[in-house]
Simulated scan of single mutants.
Amino acid sequence: MADTAAAPGLRLLLVHAHPDDESIGQGATMAKYVAEGRGVTLVTCTAGEMGEILVPELEHLAADRDDRLGEHRRGELDDAMAALGVTDHRFLGGFGRYRDSGMKWHEDGHAIAADDVHENAFWHADFTEAATLLVEVIREVRPQVLVTYDEFGGYGHPDHIQAHRVAMYAAQLAAAPSYRRDLGPAWSIAKIYWGAISESRIREGLRMLRESGDTTTFEGMDPDGTLPPMFRADEDITCEVDAGDHVEKKLDALRAHRTQITTDGPFFALSNNIGAQAFGREQFVLVHGAPGETDPATGWETDLFAGIAESAD
Rank of each mutant, 00 (worst) to 15 (best):
T132E: 08
P177A: 09
A167D: 08
L209V: 07
T128I: 14
M221D: 08
D222I: 06
H160L: 06
Y179G: 03
Q144V: 09
R180W: 05
V166D: 02
S198V: 09
S200K: 09
V137F: 00
T217I: 10
T215I: 10
Q144F: 07
Q162D: 04
W187Q: 06
M208V: 14
E136I: 10
T128Q: 13
H160M: 07
A175L: 03
I189W: 02
H164K: 04
E129Y: 03
S188I: 01
E219L: 11
Q162C: 13
W187F: 10
F152C: 12
A163I: 02
A196C: 12
T215P: 02
L173Q: 05
I192G: 11
R180F: 04
I189R: 00
A170I: 05
M208A: 15
A170W: 00
E211W: 03
T128H: 13
R207G: 15
I189F: 02
R165G: 09
V137G: 00
A186G: 10
A186Q: 07
A196G: 12
S188L: 11
G213I: 03
Y193L: 12
Y179K: 02
G184H: 04
R165H: 11
G154V: 13
T128A: 13
G153L: 07
E151V: 14
I138R: 01
E204Q: 15
L146M: 12
S212D: 09
I202S: 05
A130D: 01
